[in-house]
Amino acid sequence: MKRILLAEDDPDILYMLQKLLCSEAITCDAVLDGQAAISAYDKAVYEDRPYDLLTLDAAMPLKTGYEVTEYIRKKRSDDVPIVIVTAHTEPLAKAHADYAGATDWWPKPFEPHEFKRRVLDILSGKPRQEWSTSGLSKRDEVSHG
């Protein structure tokens, strides 16, 4: 059983992600802001039930996805896969994701099934080169080259 933490401040998108990803094989925890994401992460570590993947919205109240990533990487020294999902595809978003230590960043809006395929690629432990290569969205194709 794999565990995912979904952090997204838009309840509609969060609901859609839960519907898309959560199944008998994947347990999802969902939170609406960055501070709640940190609390959920700490709780999971404390209970020795760590997450296998975190997908974090970049723009969230209280703490951004980047800040949550920095917390996990620098303060917790954890290399759990973290994906930043952002509506911004400018170079700053990519640079910020790299700076924070995110595993990858994916643009919004995205193709739900492609999103799921990439999540499954990460959860199955595939190396990055073998992740699904088709674009999550048209903007993704542009920004990822």
Partner: peptide, 13 residues
């Protein structure tokens, strides 16, 4: 720069 980007994103959210 990244701190101000964070502040901007939080304010927007």
């Amino acid at each position: 720069m990244f701190e101000s980007h964070d502040a901007f994103l939080k304010e927007k959210a």
